[in-house]
Computed example of a mutant assay.
Amino acid sequence: MVIENIITNVKDMENKLEDYHIEKVYLESSDLLKRIQRVTTDHNREIGIRLKDNQELHVGDVLYQDDDNLIVIDVLPEELLVILPRSLKEMGDIAHQLGNRHLPAQFEEDSMIVQYDYLVEELLSSQGIPFTRKKRKVGQAFRHVGHSHG
Rank of each mutant, 00 (worst) to 15 (best):
K89E: 15
N100C: 09
P104H: 00
L123C: 06
I129Y: 02
I129T: 09
Q97R: 06
V138N: 07
T132R: 12
L88A: 12
L84G: 05
F107P: 04
D110N: 10
A105D: 03
K137Y: 10
E122H: 11
L84N: 11
E121N: 12
A95I: 10
R133H: 15
S111Y: 02
A95T: 13
S126T: 13
D110Y: 00
I129K: 05
N100I: 07
A95C: 10
L98P: 03
P130H: 05
G128T: 05
G139Y: 08
D110R: 00
H96K: 12
P85D: 07
F107Q: 04
L103R: 09
L124I: 06
Q97L: 11
E109I: 02
P130M: 03
T132A: 11
M91F: 11
V114N: 02
L103K: 11
A105R: 00
H102N: 15
D93L: 09
Y118K: 14
I83D: 03
Y118F: 11
H96L: 13
D93Y: 06
T132G: 12
F131V: 03
D117H: 02
E121R: 11
D93G: 11
G128I: 04
L98G: 04
D93H: 07
E108K: 02
R136A: 15
S125Q: 13
H102Y: 08
S126P: 08
F107I: 07
L124C: 06
Q106E: 12
G92L: 09
Q115G: 13
T132D: 14
E122V: 10
P130E: 10
R133C: 07
R136L: 15
L124Q: 02
V120G: 10
Y116M: 07
E90N: 08
V120F: 01
Y116H: 12
M112T: 03
R136M: 15
F107V: 08
P130T: 07
I94G: 07
E90Y: 05
K135N: 14
M112V: 08
E108H: 02
A95K: 06
F131E: 02
A95Q: 10
E121K: 12
I83E: 01
G92I: 01
K135I: 14
S125R: 13
K89R: 13
Q127W: 05
R136K: 15
